[in-house]
């Protein structure tokens, strides 16, 4: 569906994107995870053909260039900044963008209705967008990217500044897109979102992909050990040869195989009052890869 090969872009002395390569398959949600200024949006803009790369290539649907209008018809993009017209209604926005992609007549009506439903804005379709809440505008921004029924969808920080309800709704729509077989490229600096939605994630910083794999694989490789806290029965005797350290009646230990470790302790007949396992996440992966936190 999408192949990015050694993509590079410089702005003066700044290397915004440095030899970025990845592939995205139909029905896959691919995440670009990195802090602000890491090169995610620049990469997206080169994928959609708005920016001309200094090096490398983008191929869509087996060799098509995004500069080709025929190829662009298959791309839907929801930019990070709201790319909708505030003085038009939701329906007018969708009709306008649908027409730009060549939709007319019954097909246009059908897609506009579908998009309004997707954005849960059917009952507000005649209202001007500038009276919408931030979440509604974000949903419309997403719907405008999908009105022409693209097979490749690029979502650049689609949940920036939205309320939890709208965020969940956007997540549901992305999962729907995935189930429909669309390829989705999702850029975010929220590791929770990448962890929840993405089949594979590329960790990007200073324009370079540091690693790329499934979330579990990335955590296994770079997440480090899990922190385990077991609250033991204070009335029972606590063996002194347990791994980790005992603080009061809490056993604290670190392990790269937490489930096996817990099973071994439990096999010794100890009674657990509570158990807490803090598994490493993408935040930890990023920290271990770059020495910085995602939101630094």
């Amino acid at each position: 569906m999408l192949t990015v090969k050694n993509l590079s872009k410089r702005f003066g002395s700044l290397t915004a994107v440095d030899s970025v390569s990845f592939r995205v398959q139909p029905g896959e949600v691919f995440g670009l995870l990195g802090p602000n200024g890491a090169g995610k949006s620049t990469t997206i803009n080169m994928i959609v053909g708005v920016l001309v790369p200094d090096g490398g290539a983008v191929e869509i649907n087996s060799g098509g260039s995004p500069v080709d209008p025929g190829v662009r018809r298959n791309i839907g993009n929801a930019p990070q900044s709201l790319a909708i017209y505030g003085d038009l209604t939701a329906e007018e926005n969708l009709r306008f963008f649908g027409r730009l992609y060549g939709l007319t007549g019954a097909r246009l009506r059908e897609r506009v209705d579908w998009s309004l439903e997707l954005a849960a804005l059917t009952d507000r379709k005649g209202d001007r967008v500038d009276v919408f809440s931030g979440g509604m505008q974000r949903r419309l921004n997403l719907a405008c990217a999908l009105v022409h029924d693209p097979s490749l969808v690029l979502l650049d920080e689609p949940t920036a500044g939205v309320d939890p309800q709208s965020r969940n709704m956007i997540f549901e729509k992305i999962e729907l897109m995935k189930s429909e077989g669309r390829a989705v490229v999702y850029t975010t600096h929220y590791m929770e979102e990448a962890q929840r939605l993405c089949d594979r994630v590329a960790i990007i910083d200073h324009g370079r992909i540091l690693d790329l794999d499934s979330v579990d694989a990335l955590i296994d490789r770079h997440g480090g050990i899990s922190n385990i806290t077991i609250e033991l029965d204070p009335d029972a005797a606590i063996p002194t040869d347990l791994p980790g350290r005992i603080e009061d009646h809490f056993l604290r230990l670190e392990s790269d195989r937490p489930l096996e470790q817990i099973a071994q302790i439990s096999a010794r007949g100890l009674v657990f009052r509570s158990l807490h396992v803090e598994r490493p996440d993408l935040e930890r992966v990023f920290l271990n890869l770059t020495g910085r936190r995602l939101r630094d």
Binding site: N45, V48, G49, V50, P69, G70, R72, R73, I75, N77, P79, Q80, S81, L82, A83, I84, Y85, F97, L100, Y101, G102, C144
Partner: peptide, 14 residues
């Protein structure tokens, strides 16, 4: 400045 120009540029038009 509002980003709609970018969306226009992404459309299959010159």
């Amino acid at each position: 400045t509002h980003g709609t120009y970018l969306r226009l540029r992404l459309a299959p038009i010159s």
